[in-house]
Structures are given as structure tokens and as C-alpha cells.
Nucleic acid binder design. Structure first.
Length: 225
DNA sequence: CCGATTTGACCTAT
DNA sequence: ATAGGTCAAATCGG
């Protein structure tokens, strides 16, 4: 189900996830990063905005940004009131490519997707869990503690390199993915692998899960699904 | 009717 | 004063 390939993992780390017709390029954040993460999302086909990332958001504002061609939209978790979920995100269309959106996530979701009973988020492996959750949602989280316990994860299974420089990523699915497609994301086991691979790649850096080279030329791990 | 979006005003840090 | 972020009333849509 999950077919992953990693290419030239070097000092430049930039993860690119291809999910159906959505492409996720995970960028990095600053050293002081807390729970924020940048994700560049491209909507394949003529989709209008980033797809559903697994959470329900409510837009609460929009601003024109200096120097940016397109306005930035502000969203917060729909369950902010009901469950005091602090998660928010900002979405801004990239200047050059109108099909690209930069999405910045802030905070972790503490809301329960389906009114469950266990305590807000989990206390067990905040790191692993949130990472998984985030990956599942199509984003990534900046590690704010170097402690990103890669301890509990299995050894990375770096697949053999694939000459990918090519299908930049729209080939898989010609049409936009309907909401709900996320239900078909890899199972935890697979995600674990992804996570471990990613953490392994960037483990050396304590502040950032992913550091990225603005000129993301080479050494880009790719994960295809 | 109710919840989400729109939009200008308001707030705050630089 | 300016820019970025948020509030909230009006509006929209199911």
C-alpha cells in the first residue's frame, strides 16, 4: 500500500509526500520552532485550494500580506469552543504557481474527532503520536525537543532510490481526491516506517525535524503512495 | 434555524 | 505608523 522511495538523503532535507493527487512538500521551521509546521500543498488538476487535511477548520479571517500576491486565510479548529482545541492554520497561495498553497499549522489538535472518551490527545508518546497524527493529516510537526524519541521506532527502511526526478507528482491520480480519501492512508504500521525514516533522516538536528534548503535541489526523500 | 464565511474594524508587536 | 493577526456583525448556504 505504501510505496516509499528515498532519494539521496544528504544534508539538505526536504520531504515530499505525494498523496493521490495532492503533493505535500514539507518544509522546515526555525530553531525556536514550537508546534508549527509549514507544508506546501499542490492541488493537482484545477482544484481550488488545499484539500481536506483531516480536520475541520473554520475560517476566521483573511489578510492581504505585504509583498504577497494573494491574501492569507486564517483558520482555526472548528472545535475551539467545544473542546478548546488550539489548532490553527494559515493558507496562502504561492505567488508563482497558483496551484501551490503554503499551509502553516500552529498548535496541536486536542479535539477528539469523534467524541471519544479518552483524555485530550494522549499522554503516552506525545511525540510519536502527534507525529503520526500529523502525518496522517498530511502535515508534519516541528520537533521542539530533540527528544523526538526515535527510540521506539523501528529502523528506517530506506527504499532503494528511484529515478523520480520525473513524475513531479500528478501522475497518480488525475482528479482531485474527494474528502474522506484520508481514510485510506497507510495504517499505523506503515506510518511508523515513514516516521522512522523521516526522523532518521533528520535526527542529527535537535531543533528541527526537517531543515530545508530553500534551493531544494537534491537530496529529497520522496514518499509515494 | 443554525453553523460557516465574509469583511472591515480592532488589537498588538515591531 | 505599519503589518500581521483576530474579532464580530452581517451575510450566506444547507
Amino acid at each position: 500500500m505504501l510505496e516509499q522511495s528515498t532519494i539521496g538523503i544528504g544534508s539538505s532535507k526536504c520531504a515530499e509526500l505525494l498523496l493521490n493527487s495532492w503533493r505535500f512538500v514539507v518544509l522546515g521551521r526555525k530553531a525556536t520552532a514550537r508546534w508549527t509546521s509549514q507544508v506546501r500543498v499542490s492541488a493537482a488538476g484545477g482544484a481550488e485550494g488545499p484539500g481536506d487535511d483531516g480536520h475541520s477548520w473554520r475560517k476566521y479571517g483573511q489578510k492581504d500580506i505585504l509583498g504577497a500576491k494573494h491574501p492569507r486565510a486564517y483558520y482555526r479548529c472548528t472545535h475551539r469552543n467545544s473542546q478548546a482545541c488550539p489548532a490553527t492554520k494559515q493558507v496562502q497561495r504561492a505567488d508563482q504557481d497558483p496551484a501551490l498553497f503554503d499551509v502553516v499549522y500552529h498548535g496541536q489538535h486536542t479535539c477528539r474527532p469523534t467524541g471519544g472518551r479518552r483524555p485530550p490527545t494522549n499522554q503516552h508518546n506525545p511525540h510519536a503520536e502527534s507525529l503520526l497524527q500529523s502525518l496522517r493529516a498530511g502535515l508534519t510537526v516541528d520537533a521542539e525537543h530533540g527528544a523526538l524519541n526515535n527510540t521506539s521506532v523501528s529502523p528506517p527502511s530506506m527504499a532503494s532510490p528511484v529515478a523520480s526526478g520525473s513524475n513531479g507528482g500528478l501522475a497518480m491520480s488525475p482528479y482531485p481526491v474527494p474528502a474522506g480519501a484520508y481514510a485510506e492512508w497507510p495504517l499505523d504500521g506503515d506510518l511508523q516506517e515513514v516516521v522512522s525514516a523521516l526522523t532518521a533522516v533528520s535526527a542529527p538536528s535537535m531543533d528541527c525535524l526537517f531543515e530545508f534548503d530553500p534551493t531544494f535541489g537534491v537530496g529529497v526523500p520522496n514518499f509515494f503512495m
